Amino acid sequence: MTTRHFGADPRSQAGTRVEFPASRTDGGEASVSNDVAVQTRDFGGCTILTVPGDLDAALADEIRWAANAADSRHVVVDLGRAGSVDASAATALVGLHERARARGGGVCVVTRELGVRAQFEQVAPGFAPRCYDQIGDALEASMSDRDAAPADLA
Rank of each mutant, 00 (worst) to 15 (best):
T2D: 06
D9S: 08
P10D: 05
S12V: 08
Q13L: 15
G15T: 04
G15F: 04
R17L: 14
E19W: 08
A22I: 02
A22Q: 06
D26Y: 14
E29K: 12
S31P: 09
S31W: 03
V32K: 05
S33G: 14
N34D: 14
D35G: 12
A37V: 03
A37G: 07
V38T: 08
V38L: 07
Q39R: 06
R41M: 13
D42L: 05
D42I: 03
G44H: 09
L49A: 04
V51S: 07
P52L: 00
G53T: 07
D54R: 05
D54I: 04
L55S: 04
L59G: 11
A60I: 04
D61L: 03
D61P: 03
E62L: 00
R64S: 13
R64F: 06
W65N: 11
W65V: 10
A67C: 09
A67T: 09
D71L: 11
D71M: 09
R73W: 08
L79P: 09
L79E: 06
R81E: 06
A89K: 01
A90N: 01
A92T: 10
L96M: 04
R99P: 11
A100Q: 08
A102T: 13
V109W: 03
V109E: 01
V109I: 11
G115W: 03
A118T: 15
F120I: 04
F120P: 04
F120C: 04
Q122G: 08
V123L: 02
A124D: 02
P125M: 03
P125T: 04
F127D: 14
P129I: 01
D133R: 13
I135H: 02
A138K: 04
L139S: 05
A141F: 12
M143W: 11
R146C: 07
L153C: 11
